[in-house]
């Protein structure tokens, strides 16, 4: 049997919002260490990886490993039925063809349970090798979302250039060009506003802006985002989910000579 309980439905709502535009369906793999989800987007260009650790839940029980295939659109609809501060419990039997999602208001005056049919999804679990990245940039998640949104107006491609002086985002198109430079933050009054760059080797890579924008749907989950880059390796955009886990998006760089 599987049972997982979170104190506030809002975190689960945000997680669903972060993945449902990229994925229509996905498999939640449940084990005693937590819940993992890994799937390529519908056009097989980017990869999403979600990890929720068991110790981040108010209550977590998983006697036997379980895979639950879900329609994420339906799941998001069900989560809309919850108030943000309701606590939420997910339950499934060992050979389940449904999952139950229960919302309880404070004082349990309103208790709602929804049973959602599960799907049989064939999905390979890709092993993602640990990579020593040449550059790791941590920056405010809202700033990254804004940069991706702003640069999308100029081009469908964005170039990210990382050196020891800072990180530069560029786009060039019919309208003109845009360059946004972020310097490494010196003294940090507010940790969440810091821009921190760890660089072993400069990197310049080009990415499809559409996917970066889709990744920034995870902005509500975290104040900071981490970009990890290495030549010839997919970019990793990572949002920590406080006390619970993280969501990572992988996007291969475009294969073309940079004209910037």
């Amino acid at each position: 049997m599987f049972e997982a309980r979170l104190g506030q439905a809002t975190i689960l709502k945000k997680i669903l919002d972060a993945i449902k535009d990229l994925l229509n369906e996905a498999t939640f793999d449940c084990s005693d260490s937590g819940i993992q989800l890994q799937a390529m987007d519908n056009s097989h260009v980017s990869l999403v990886s979600l990890t929720l650790r068991s110790d981040g839940f108010d209550k977590f029980r998983c006697d036997r490993n379980l895979s639950m295939g879900m329609n994420l659109g339906s799941m998001a609809k069900i989560l809309k039925c919850a108030n943000n501060e309701d606590n939420v419990t997910m339950k499934a039997q060992d050979n389940a063809d449904t999952v139950t999602i229960m919302f309880e208001s404070a004082n349990q005056e309103k208790v709602s349970d929804y049973e959602m049919k599960l799907m049989n999804l064939d999905q390979e679990h890709l092993g993602i090798p640990e990579t020593d990245f040449s550059c790791v940039v941590r920056m405010p998640a809202m700033e990254f979302a804004r940069i991706c949104r702003d640069l999308a107006q100029f081009s469908e491609s964005v170039v990210i250039c990382c050196t020891k002086e800072g990180v530069k985002f560029s786009a060039s198109g019919d309208v003109g060009t845009a360059n946004i430079k972020l310097a490494q933050t010196g003294s940090v009054d507010k940790e969440e506003e810091a821009v921190i760059i760890e660089m072993q080797e400069p990197v310049t890579l080009t990415f499809a802006c559409r996917y970066l924008n889709a990744f920034t749907k995870a902005t509500p989950l975290s104040t900071q985002v981490q970009l990890s880059m290495c030549a010839d390796v997919p970019l990793v955009v990572e949002y920590a989910i406080k006390d619970l886990g993280h969501i990572r998006y992988y996007l291969a760089p475009k294969i073309e000579d940079n004209e910037t």
């Binding site: 208001s105 004082n107 005056e109 349970d113 929804y114």
Partner: peptide, 18 residues
């Protein structure tokens, strides 16, 4: 329905004023 089932229970009480 096709998506699944939904079941909402309200109890008398002061918080929601039912």
């Amino acid at each position: 329905g096709d998506l699944g089932t939904a079941n909402i229970q309200l109890s008398a009480g002061t918080a929601m004023d039912v």
